[in-house]
Design a protein around this nucleic acid. Sequence first.
DNA 1: ATTTTCATGTGAAATGGTTCACAAGAAATT
DNA 2: AATTTCTTGTGAACCATTTCACATGAAAAT
Lengths: 220, 220
Amino acid sequence: MSSEQPAKKRISESTIHRLSMYYRTLSLLQKEGYETVSSKELANREKLTPAQVRKDLSFFGSFGTRGLGYDVNELKAKIGEILGIDRQWKLAIIGIGNIGSALVNYKEFSRQGFSIVKLFDNDQRKIGSNHKGIIVSDIKNLDKEIAEDGIEMVIITVPATVAQYMVDDVVRAGVKAILNFAPINLKVPPNVYLRNENMSMELEYLSFAIVNNHTPKNSK
Amino acid sequence: MSSEQPAKKRISESTIHRLSMYYRTLSLLQKEGYETVSSKELANREKLTPAQVRKDLSFFGSFGTRGLGYDVNELKAKIGEILGIDRQWKLAIIGIGNIGSALVNYKEFSRQGFSIVKLFDNDQRKIGSNHKGIIVSDIKNLDKEIAEDGIEMVIITVPATVAQYMVDDVVRAGVKAILNFAPINLKVPPNVYLRNENMSMELEYLSFAIVNNHTPKNSK
DNA sequence: ATTTTCATGTGAAATGGTTCACAAGAAATT
DNA sequence: AATTTCTTGTGAACCATTTCACATGAAAAT
Ligand SMILES: NC(=O)c1ccc[n+]([C@@H]2O[C@H](COP(=O)([O-])OP(=O)(O)OC[C@H]3O[C@@H](n4cnc5c(N)ncnc54)[C@H](O)[C@@H]3O)[C@@H](O)[C@H]2O)c1
Ligand SMILES: NC(=O)c1ccc[n+]([C@@H]2O[C@H](COP(=O)([O-])OP(=O)(O)OC[C@H]3O[C@@H](n4cnc5c(N)ncnc54)[C@H](O)[C@@H]3O)[C@@H](O)[C@H]2O)c1
């Protein structure tokens, strides 16, 4: 075993997002009783082109049958594998305020491969309280509890002023991926993945669109 | 007055998102006491290239001084204008559940030009209740109250199963832009702007990144 | 005043992403 | 068995976005 990086083609962020979309649509098609689906049908449901669908999939292999299309169950399983959601990820939420507690209450996450198993806060009034069967832990025990449970992802929902400290802490504790809601540019080492969820930016986009009569090619 | 569309260059979604980022950074620079800032400094704070910053701005005019950089206050005002946040937008939230109530409690929105002025739900136990001084209205009065208040944007935080109905209703009521949290592909007429906030997709992206050792060029 | 320094603004080049167009291959039909 | 129909998978063409590189111009220094 000599090479660390599997010299694979670099996949664009948009392709990955579309895989998520295909996955969701395939779940619906399953429920609707479809056995197979063409790139055309899949594209229609997402307002994309069939070529886009086929190209996206082609980066990872060839999963269809010419003249017939894709087997719905099979393609869904395959995309699930590609996305890494053919398993349960364990997550913790840091900061059990407005957003943090809304997220704990969301049952869909665990059905989609993301189990929230730990909650952390530094407010004595919150520590020990129960959210959907999970007791809020003291942030002081972060290191120990993250390691104990083998948590690999966290959601950051603390005030922006302390978000970087929390990130440094969870990185030190061995977390590999972070979904951040604080409106601030966080620094993470290169081996840790970070995504930002910024609602104000989305509202600003809408504001711009109204004011400028904006018609982009492919909007979210 | 003959032409409807001001035949302007089409701006990319990424440029608009970066304008939001510049805006936020300029606010910080203001607080830190900076009077001017170079494209280099601005780029550093966002992990972008100086050329990117200059190119983005160049679509809208030329706001800097050669040899010196940009005036912080001036550039912030200018970007605020471009984004259309040099005014207060009035918003309503449809569905006052977990996410909906988290959003009402977020004071920052109104400071950023987005005032939440109405809340709607169809649950009798919620209608009439008070959130940060706003009384939850019956969804039945949507049309009337949206018109009365001149609401142009709404946030949709109802279950996915009813989201399309709510969208149809708010569109009929004259709303121009929608921020949607329900994990479903909504249809809107071409003169209405829609953005989707999909947290599962972000988690799936992180999952993909861990599993595939992903290093994209420009990630969120 | 002249020179030096610095950083903008912008065409042109390079890179990246999407769409086209068609050969290939599987199933259905004759 | 041969033909027709259908839809995939993929290079090549196209289009969009980012980066380069430098002329331009403002301010500071000499
Ligand atoms: N609420 C929203 O709608 C909304 C919208 C957009 C962005 N955000 C961002 O999300 C973040 C959370 O927002 P919120 O409204 O839930 O805030 P909140 O104040 O309700 O919750 C923050 C929580 O973090 C906890 N906390 C603070 N410092 C901590 C620390 N050092 N360690 C552990 N826990 C700590 C607090 O006790 C609190 O429970 C903020 O950064 C905010 O800017 C929120
Ligand atoms: N909670 C989360 O963390 C989370 C995360 C991602 C996505 N989402 C999505 O956001 C949406 C809201 O999630 P939530 O957890 O807040 O759900 P929720 O059930 O807590 O809230 C939904 C609210 O909508 C109201 N509602 C239902 N039908 C309505 C109608 N016809 N008119 C008006 N109001 C109506 C309900 O009374 C309820 O108050 C869902 O689509 C969900 O999938 C939620």
